[in-house]
């Protein structure tokens, strides 16, 4: 792995940590604040692609595991990996991987700006919402013995917010691509 790739992954991990520490950002049109950390996971895939995006998310989880309060709300330590919601944390890795892979597959520089944004949205939605919730809900269902349908119902309330984050990730991903392109291109 080139030193530059390692540095990019580490810097993005630091961005994800920082997004967990800033106060929740208010959206203009709905009165609900969004916590930006899971947005950071989608952004890692959208901006850095599959490999480096996944490494940056893994780094955040390693920092949390070794006892640093890097997760939103100052959470950290091994206990976050022994909680009913641990599946969502494990899901972050696959969310960044899927988002990054799909971004590389779907988005190219020759596309029109609107098409790029839509493709980034598809990548973020599939990775950051669908894959993430499959991991989170399966883990919740298995660990607590609740069963899939009840675990799904318990998670339902959070899905609209995460779809909104996929929109923001797509807009931001396209803007970063214009300003400082880093996404590996498929030949």
């Amino acid at each position: 792995m080139a030193t530059r790739d390692l540095v990019l992954s580490a810097l993005f991990a630091a961005i994800i940590v920082a997004l967990g520490l800033v106060p929740p950002i208010m959206l203009g049109f709905i009165p609900v604040p969004i916590t930006a950390q899971s947005l950071g996971v989608m952004l890692a895939g959208v901006v850095l692609g599959a490999k480096r995006g996944t490494i940056s998310v893994l780094l955040v989880l390693v920092l949390a595991a070794i006892g640093l309060p890097v997760l939103s709300g100052g959470r950290g330590g091994l206990a976050v990996f022994m909680a009913p919601t641990t599946g969502y944390l494990i899901g972050w890795v696959f969310a960044a991987l899927t988002t990054g892979y799909l971004s590389q597959l779907l988005v190219s520089h020759s596309q029109a700006g609107f098409v790029q944004t839509v493709n980034f949205f598809v990548a973020a939605l599939f990775g950051g919402v669908i894959v993430l919730y499959i991991c989170g809900i399966s883990y919740l269902a298995l660990v607590t013995g609740l069963g899939f349908s009840k675990a799904f119902m318990g998670s339902l309330a959070f899905i609209p917010g995460d779809v909104l984050k996929a929109v923001i990730a797509a807009l931001a991903g396209r803007a970063v691509m214009v300003g400082y392109p880093l996404l590996p291109q498929r030949a």
Binding site: L11, A14, L59
Partner: peptide, 12 residues
């Protein structure tokens, strides 16, 4: 990498 992240969080 862990050192880099800890170093750059305050800066970000």
């Amino acid at each position: 990498s862990i050192g880099l992240v800890i170093r750059f969080v305050p800066e970000i």
